[in-house]
Structure formats: structure tokens, C-alpha cells
Computed example of a mutant assay.
Amino acid sequence: MTVPSAYRPGACNIGRSARRQRGLVALVSLVGAGGYAAFVLVSDLPTLLLLGLFVPLSLGIEWGLQARRSFCVTLALQGRYDFREPRTDGGETDQGQGTVPDEAARSEDRRYALQLTLIGLAAGALLTGLVYAGAVLLGL
């Protein structure tokens, strides 16, 4: 899959570097959720604490979607885009970031940002419910 390198309203507002950052946050969140679930399940803690999976699962899913789809929710809400990439000297390019000037494009970005957030929340809730229900059914 090619990584987009230019702003497209409601579709793409970040480049390769920002995608990597979001992918790392997603991975850490999902691994953390797995570790938390394992800890709760093998300990004497109440199974009800598995409902705490909602936050890291929702965060991990949403940020994973942002990484996959080259779209940052926060930048969309700010009416901005960022395609800066690291330079070989350790800095990053000054070009490739800015403000979205068109109100229609900003509106489209906000709509897509809301969609990604709602998908993350719904998927986080569904997975949390499945893990909790599975633990209850198995008597863990």
C-alpha cells in the first residue's frame, strides 16, 4: 500500500512519520490491554475489573485506524494537516504542515474524525463486552 503524501479532505491528513507514531500508540495500547486482561484473569481480582479494558481497547483501535487510514482525528478537529518527515540529520522537514483553508474541507475532516472515533468506541465496547462475557461464562 502506498502512503499518501498530500492532504485530501476527509481522507488523508498525515504522512508516514505520523502514521508510525499512531501505530506505535495503538500497539502499546492493545498490548497493555492484553496484559491487563491476563492479570485480572489470573489474579483474585473481581472479573468486573475487565470492564477497564474499554479505554485501552478503544484507544488502540482508534489510533490503529488513524495509522492505517493516514488520518489524525486531533489534527482534523484543529483544521490542520501534517506531512513532515524526519531528515537524515535528525530534524524534520519544515514543509508539509499547515492549516486547512477551506471550510467545506474542514467540515469533511471533522465528519471523518467523528466516524473514526465512533468506530473505535464501538469496537472497544464490543471487545470489552466479549472478553467480560467470556470470563463470566467460563467462571473466571
Rank of each mutant, 00 (worst) to 15 (best):
V25S: 10
V28H: 04
G79T: 13
Q97R: 08
V40Y: 03
L27Q: 04
L45Y: 04
S70Y: 14
P101C: 02
Y112N: 12
R80S: 08
Q78D: 13
R22G: 05
T93N: 07
T117N: 02
F71R: 13
G23P: 10
F39H: 11
V100H: 00
Y112L: 14
A67D: 08
L27G: 02
L118E: 00
A105Y: 05
Y36F: 15
L41A: 12
L65W: 11
A26G: 12
R80F: 10
L45H: 10
G79S: 12
S43N: 05
L114G: 15
D109V: 12
A113G: 07
E103K: 05
Q66F: 01
L27W: 02
R110C: 07
L30M: 09
G96P: 03
R111L: 11
A104K: 10
L65Y: 05
G91F: 00
R111H: 11
L41V: 06
T88V: 09
T99K: 02
I61E: 00
C72T: 09
L75V: 04
R110W: 13
G96E: 01
T117Q: 06
V31P: 13
A105N: 00
S29Q: 02
V31S: 08
T99V: 12
T117V: 14
R69Q: 10
L45I: 08
Q66S: 15
G79W: 11
L77M: 13
L118H: 03
G98S: 05
F83C: 12
S107A: 07
I61G: 02
L49F: 03
G34E: 11
D102Q: 13
S58L: 05
L65K: 03
I61Y: 09
R106I: 09
G34D: 06
T88R: 02
G96W: 02
A37I: 00
L49G: 02
R87N: 06
G98N: 04
S58Q: 06
G90F: 12
D89K: 10
A33E: 10
G79Y: 07
T93G: 05
R19N: 11
C72F: 14
F71L: 10
T74K: 12
E108I: 10
L57C: 06
D94Q: 10
R69S: 10
A38V: 09
L53N: 09
W63G: 01
G60K: 09
L118C: 14
G90C: 09
P46E: 06
D82T: 02
A104F: 02
D44N: 13
Q97Y: 01
V25W: 03
G64W: 06
L48G: 01
Q78L: 15
Q95P: 01
Q115N: 02
R84W: 12
A26S: 14
L27E: 03
